[in-house]
């Protein structure tokens, strides 16, 4: 199980939040997803054997949001 934090550039609309949340949800093994509007961060946990952080990252970028940094930590 990993705890992942993605830092996004420029979240502007509240509907972006729902969109990003849904796109993370769509990947296997993700849980406890929180999209923080004001700090521009996405926090979630990723279980082993599920999708990869890279996959999630590219999904978010596909929708037009820049992912400026990723941080992972085993828990």
């Amino acid at each position: 199980m990993k705890k992942v934090v993605l830092t996004l550039g420029g979240l502007t609309c509240p509907s972006c939040l729902t969109k990003i949340k849904k796109s993370v949800e769509a990947v296997n093994g993700t849980g406890d997803i929180r999209v923080l509007f004001n700090s521009g961060k996405v926090k979630f946990t990723l279980a082993q054997g599920g999708g990869t952080v890279e996959e999630i990252r590219s999904n978010i970028e596909k929708m037009g949001y820049q992912v400026e940094g990723t941080r992972e930590k085993e828990i």
């Binding site: 609309c13 509907s15 729902t18 969109k19 849904k22 796109s23 596909k62 929708m63 037009g64």
Partner: peptide, 12 residues
């Protein structure tokens, strides 16, 4: 379009 892909009818 990306909203619709996520099944979201947004303002856009």
């Amino acid at each position: 379009i990306s909203s619709l892909q996520m099944k979201l009818v947004s303002i856009d």
